[in-house]
Design a binder for these strands. Structure first.
Length: 280
DNA sequence: CCCCGAACCTGACAGC
DNA sequence: TGCTGTCAGGTTCGGG
């Protein structure tokens, strides 16, 4: 469930359920999922000597808030620590008891009221970070502006793009430029903007950048209303699915709404879908 | 310094 | 049926 609208949906739904609960412990079922050592927080593979017990950091912590920054979920507590979750490709937070349908539980929150929060993640890319308050910036420091903030504007993009030599697709996927976009929404945004994915950023006009900013906000707004996009659903019983996949115009499609053939190329290691008639 | 491909993993699916 | 190859919503690392 990985791009901004999906993360936003998780945050909204989870907030109602877990705020006020007190953590008894967080169990790690797959080594490296729960990170609390600052020196190895972001390492792809946690080294044996970096492993640190987090038991004392979370025991008795009361959850007082849950918010989002980019694709990161930030759970605040009444202790000196915050819990930050990144779902990566296949991570899911599920507010239910462990059961046989959840075959890839990588971490498990035990609450004092005998309920659970399950972190299920087949591909094991997802991570849970336990970080002292105030050091949260370590995780999030490099993120660009939120798409809905004033800071994300045509003017901003124009300034940043002037020094960059990459494509608009790669730039929008870069979380340091703007936080929260992923492959699906970038494809949709560029189609809606009428801009070809491989255009060089420094060659884009202010009018085109304005269109990108507008399309980004419109598409994300609609997707959030739909509770996000659900693709290739190997989902479990009680995690709800989004419906924005019904409104996708190019991602995973054969033809665009104008009836033109959709093309697909590998770019930056992943598929880019586009219409060469609608996008220039 | 910037950029891209590989790496980190498991599962689904198409084709033979 | 069972094998092989490809693909998947993300980020980090290392080589060019």
């Amino acid at each position: 469930m990985p791009e901004l609208p999906e993360v936003e949906t998780v945050v909204r739904e989870l907030g109602e359920k877990i705020i006020g609960k007190v953590i008894d412990k967080i169990e790690e079922n797959y080594r490296g999922t729960v990170r609390c050592n600052e020196s190895s927080l972001f390492c792809l593979k946690e080294k044996e000597e970096d492993y640190l017990s987090h038991d004392s950091m979370v025991k008795g912590a009361k959850i007082i808030g849950i918010t989002r920054r980019g694709k990161y979920i930030i759970i605040t507590t009444d202790t000196d620590y915050e819990i930050i979750v990144h779902l990566r490709m296949t991570g899911k937070l599920i507010n239910s008891s462990p059961n046989d349908s959840l075959k890839h539980i990588r971490a498990l929150f035990y609450f004092t009221d005998s309920t659970y929060l399950i972190f299920n993640d087949p591909r094991t890319f997802g991570k849970i970070y336990i970080i002292p308050k105030g050091k949260t910036d370590m995780v999030i420091r490099s993120l660009g502006p939120e798409p809905f903030s004033q800071d994300f504007s045509a003017e901003y993009l124009f300034n940043r793009f002037s020094k960059m030599k990459t494509t608009i697709r790669n730039a929008l996927l870069n979380q340091e430029i703007v936080a929260g976009l992923g492959n699906i929404y970038v494809c949709e945004i560029l189609y809606d903007s009428g801009i070809m994915f491989d255009r060089s950023v420094s060659a884009l006009s202010k009018a085109e950048l304005k269109k990108i900013v507008k399309s980004t906000r419109e598409i994300l707004t609609e997707a959030i209303k739909c509770n996000g996009t659900t693709i290739s659903d190997f989902r479990s019983v009680d995690d709800k699915t989004g419906t924005f996949q019904n409104f996708l115009k190019v991602y995973g499609k054969k033809t665009c709404p104008q009836g033109h053939q959709i093309s697909r190329v590998k770019a930056g290691g992943r598929s880019s879908y586009f219409c060469d008639k609608c996008q220039k």
